[in-house]
Nucleic acid binder design. Structure first.
Length: 419
RNA sequence: GUAGAUGUAGCUCAACGGUGAGAGCGCUGGACUGUGGCUCCAGAGGUUGCGGGUUCGAAUCCCGUCAUCUACCCCA
């Protein structure tokens, strides 16, 4: 019999880490709530078609990274690879456009992509994200960005950078693509094999190629945000103005294009150097064409998605420097000697827990010495000792593990003595 | 899908092709009949990832396979 392991690309999240996780989740909720975003929970699986149409047939996600299967009713089902398309689907399905606009929601949950795992990349990972539907205002683009960095700031995270770009609307983007092809075609032999393919399929991708030769070519090309149509240009100026009003530092980066088809105008990423090759903590942008693509009426929208595991990765690095003290410890450990005392300890523990005291006891019938050792490992602040004498006298010996002071406490007064 | 690295005790790692595969940490017990952190002693714990091959002899060399990690593609 071989032991069963967790499937490739999945992880079990262990003791020290969940503390950071729940703090991060709490922070997301509170930051979003304050800005008027409410939680939405969409299904973990959806009809495959949602992503084919929403994310785009020719994207890597749809082409090769989806967990897709036929259910027993022969429906093609896909484990969600991202959160935006499902939210927009829900917005349309529940006719949320009929209510007050914009609709602002946030989510936290697992996403799935069939990829080769590496540092910062898992097949099941967790994202938090927000979506603001129903308004084209650049203020929302900026708000969404500020929300994301507010979460990081509230967590005490430093050293991240906001990178901003605009990829325009289909009209001006296509015009730019054509000129891009024209310029780059003259240098085909200086581009890598991948980029030669990209040149015809998705020329913008050439811009964020990591190959040095391609980078040089891409750097020589005029940035897209200098070639936007008037509407897109005005919008981009508006976003920058709003960011500056909020004192949010950003870097213009014409090479960020994002791999999902639905983005229009604003695109951005928040990166951190402590992450390895996959350096994006989060990313997002505007997707004014998505609702229509999913069969709804044209609806502007903007949002971001950010990786929880990646954030935890950087936060953990920062925490280690401090002392790594995430083990919270317990208030009390009850050490008992003898069957009768053990029963009493069991009873007392249960009672104290109801009074809000965190208590643990020995379950291995160990010696007193071992129980003390164990209590120490658990980080117990106090230990109550119950033996035959104490049982008879109806008291316990309460030891302070820090000062080593011991006192006799009547059994009934234990709760009081601990507060 | 591609490339490289790595698989030995719970963890981190040793072991020139040659005794019965070791150490540190951790775990359990004891020294200390009922008192933690330090020290000392003892004990438990291994299909050397798996399957073949070469050899008198394989953890070690060869082939295959699986897994993990890192990177590419791309993304959170």
């Amino acid at each position: 019999m071989t032991r069963i392991r967790a499937p490739r690309g999945t992880v079990d999240v262990f003791p020290e880490i969940p503390g950071i996780w729940s703090r991060l989740e709490d922070t997301v909720r509170s930051v979003c709530r304050k800005a008027g975003y409410t939680e939405i929970r969409t299904p973990i699986f959806e009809h495959t078609e949602l992503f084919q149409r929403g994310v785009g047939e020719s994207t890597d996600i749809v082409e090769k990274e989806m967990y897709t299967f036929l259910d027993k009713g022969k429906r093609s089902i896909t484990l969600r690879p991202e959160g935006t398309a499902p939210v927009v689907r829900a917005y349309l399905e529940h006719k949320m456009w009929a209510g007050p606009q914009p609709v602002k929601v946030y989510y936290i949950g697992p996403m799935f992509r069939y990829e080769r795992p590496q540092l910062g990349r898992l097949r099941q990972h967790t994202q938090f994200g927000v979506e603001a539907l129903g308004s084209p205002s650049p203020a929302l683009d900026a708000e969404v960005i500020s929300l994301l960095i507010s979460v990081y700031q509230a967590m005490g995270l430093h050293g991240f950078v906001v990178r901003l770009n605009s990829i325009g609307c289909p009209e001006c983007r296509n015009r730019y693509k054509e000129s891009l092809i024209e310029i780059l075609s003259k240098h085909v032999d200086e581009l890598c094999a991948d980029c030669n393919r990209r040149l015809t399929r998705n020329p913008l991708r050439v811009l964020d190629c990591k190959n040095e030769q391609c980078k040089a070519q891409a750097g020589a090309v005029p940035p897209i945000y200098e070639h936007l149509c008037e509407d897109c240009s005005l919008h981009f100026e508006g976003v920058k103005q709003c960011l500056e009003a909020l004192d949010i530092a950003y870097e213009l980066d014409p090479t960020i294009v994002r791999g999902l088809d639905y983005y229009t105008k604003t695109v951005f990423e928040v990166i951190h150097s402590g992450l390895g090759a996959q350096d994006a903590l989060g990313g997002g942008g505007r997707y004014d064409g998505l609702a229509e693509e999913l069969g709804g009426k044209p609806t502007p929208g903007v949002g971001f998605a950010a990786g929880i595991e990646r954030a935890v990765q950087v936060l953990q690095g920062a925490a280690d420097e401090k002392t790594g003290q995430f083990a919270s410890g317990i208030d009390l450990f009850i050490a008992a000697l003898g069957d009768e005392a053990r029963l009493e300890a069991f009873r007392q523990a249960n009672d104290l827990r109801k009074h809000g005291v965190s208590v643990d006891i020995d379950y291995l019938e160990r010696s007193l010495k071992s129980q003390m050792k164990f209590a120490d490992k658990l980080g117990a602040r106090k230990v109550a000792i119950i033996g035959e004498d104490e049982l008879k006298g109806n008291y316990v010996i309460l030891r302070d593990m820090e000062t080593r002071e011991q006192t006799r406490v009547p059994s009934g007064d234990l709760v009081k003595a601990l507060l």
